[in-house]
Write a protein that binds this DNA or RNA. Sequence first.
DNA 1: GATTAACCGAGACGGTACGTCACGTCTTTAA
DNA 2: TTAAAGACGTGACGTACCGTCTCGGTTAATC
Lengths: 220, 220, 220, 220
Amino acid sequence: MMDPVIVETNRESVAESTAGAADTDAAEACDDAPRRGRPRSKEFDESILAATLELAGEVGIKGMSMDELAQRAGVSKATIYRRWPSKEILVLQALQSAMRPLDDVDTGAVVEDLRLCLGEMIARMSTKDRMNDVLPHLVEMATHDATLRSAVDDYVQNRRVPVRQVLERAVGRGELPADTDIETLVDALLGPIIYRRLLSGGTLDADFLDRLIELVLPDR
Amino acid sequence: MMDPVIVETNRESVAESTAGAADTDAAEACDDAPRRGRPRSKEFDESILAATLELAGEVGIKGMSMDELAQRAGVSKATIYRRWPSKEILVLQALQSAMRPLDDVDTGAVVEDLRLCLGEMIARMSTKDRMNDVLPHLVEMATHDATLRSAVDDYVQNRRVPVRQVLERAVGRGELPADTDIETLVDALLGPIIYRRLLSGGTLDADFLDRLIELVLPDR
Amino acid sequence: MMDPVIVETNRESVAESTAGAADTDAAEACDDAPRRGRPRSKEFDESILAATLELAGEVGIKGMSMDELAQRAGVSKATIYRRWPSKEILVLQALQSAMRPLDDVDTGAVVEDLRLCLGEMIARMSTKDRMNDVLPHLVEMATHDATLRSAVDDYVQNRRVPVRQVLERAVGRGELPADTDIETLVDALLGPIIYRRLLSGGTLDADFLDRLIELVLPDR
Amino acid sequence: MMDPVIVETNRESVAESTAGAADTDAAEACDDAPRRGRPRSKEFDESILAATLELAGEVGIKGMSMDELAQRAGVSKATIYRRWPSKEILVLQALQSAMRPLDDVDTGAVVEDLRLCLGEMIARMSTKDRMNDVLPHLVEMATHDATLRSAVDDYVQNRRVPVRQVLERAVGRGELPADTDIETLVDALLGPIIYRRLLSGGTLDADFLDRLIELVLPDR
DNA sequence: GATTAACCGAGACGGTACGTCACGTCTTTAA
DNA sequence: TTAAAGACGTGACGTACCGTCTCGGTTAATC
């Protein structure tokens, strides 16, 4: 199930990083204001995000029109734009809302931890979660629109966190040397996975994962 | 300087890989045909591709309008569409035409080979070549448009080739074990670089490259 | 001055006669419907029609581009196409909206009636009303587009009505024989006028009108 | 069969009336010049004109593209433009080439003469000769293009000539009064016919013709 | 309960780009 | 020189989409 609290949290973090741009939902930041008038329907937040994931997965971001999205979500376009200032921000939000944090695995062995952690990541990419196809679009957007940059950063960092934690614990245990360059290590693990997913089209399975880990963390 | 021969070569390779889709320039494949009528101006091929690289680098693919592109190239829109069936295919062609093959380095030591080969790759990404920002866009397109898929594949494979050659030579020399999984190794080397370039935003310098190679090919 | 009521009336009459073709403004026929959404701006209907008359009069139908028309009307192209499905239909509508009904003259003498009625018609053709040049274009269109046919018919019939009324009254008064073939008579009066206007280029003045009437209705 | 001599004659008359515009076929005026190089194929003149009549009759002038016309005539576009400077001029030529002069009837009775002469005209309009639909287009063109005006005039005058001759003979015989306004009379006869053909859509048959003549030339 | 402020659906609107098409010219090879 | 083939500039076409705005009507909190 999707937790509306997470949605709200995400929205605010974005509202901050895109400061000045979105006066649309500025009021929501100050919770103490009594807020007169009819409140926004919570149901719509969810149905819009869900429709976004579904539709963008089917036809891509560029292929997804806001009119069709509104229809699919059973909502009017104004209702969407009252909540998110642009298509890109909406898509990003939808991504974040769908991204449940990876379970923080801790088996005591770094190789096993990585196998589980990255395995889950691959599983999400491979199966239902067609929204991964959407990431590149956001990247290009971010290249030319400063507003989106930090939001995309947030999104990417979320993926790094669990891997980094696994590695840091391994350093703490002495399983990895204390001077290990963790950031590079994270890149060396995530990079090939993302690369296969987006570009090379190589298979993404447990076997590949084993070989990758063996390559980067040999003899352990 | 841009070599027209390369342009031609690239065009044909794509024409093959997108067989059936583009009848636009199908005739050019068979060289023996007498080729009647006024021939297409070679100058325009170049000026259009050059303008594409320039303009897409400045404002991104989405921000680049075909009208402005035509004007910048000193050409009419029809002249562009006579050669390429869509904006995306054009951009892809432009990428390929601009991509000079990496020099095939062979110093006799695999680590040094990789340092040079990948170093050159990073150098191209980092500096002038803003067209790298354009890759993600193509990836998303390719996800939903079969025509583009193989073309993008071509483009990606071109980057893999020199790295693969370096590794195969190392295996031949006995510098790497005979059972080395070369494809995974290529992914492990290219993946992190691409990942940093597109997503994580981490620095791409000689230092990172050294650490990456040390990580993947230790003690050699 | 242009009466918006007339405009509406004309639009609906055409909407009927071109049934099936134009779903664009079908909804407007049923007045009892609650009419949801933002209503179309009445001002734009008028400004578009006015700009059409003005522009087509200056440069002809073929010379009139929809982009320039939109600009002249202070309106976007989409706003035009939301109301009329094609350039030709729009021009026809503009013609009809501009065509004030001829005053129904009744002096008691058929010759005098015709002199006034046809004189007014000639006056409108000769002077300001450059839109007359546009009629031939519509005729050719109508030849190959069934949608336009009935609409053009409407337009033509409107010109016949007042002349027919004058003649019918004359028959009623006994001024013309009861077995008068009115339709042929109308053709015999309107035909030469239209012919001179469109083709022969002969003068269209009171003198010609007198001779024409004398010819067709002698000694009365 | 179509007489190439007539074609040639017509072409030259137009070349004169559109002086300055068409240097395309200027050389042909001076017959004594030896005329170097490959001569123009006479066959093509005919096949182009025939294809023009055929195609314009099917889809209208506007619907007829010069590319399709060239293909239908088995000729290249340049071959067409080498002969006629514009689409409109070509169509006009095609009209004239197809228009065999009406037989000059002379039965000794004006009413019978007109019945035959106008009857033949109606017959041609009604049946095969779909090119009549094309006339209005030319009229509008002529309105905004001085070059075409005189050419269209020529065409129109050709229709008036035989009627005028019939009437002049009647005046000579004393069948019509010496002060008859022949021009107005011609308009009164041709006008209603053209009007029915182009606009009112009324029937064009022998009956209508009889009534029309009776109306304009009563009791004779 | 009345007021009021904000919500909602529907869809018009300006703007911008798309990819197509046609005209009339120009450029090549072949006859 | 003409012919066939077709590239080319120009410019309009009609469509699609984004993000905003404007209606009529609804829904809660406040008065």
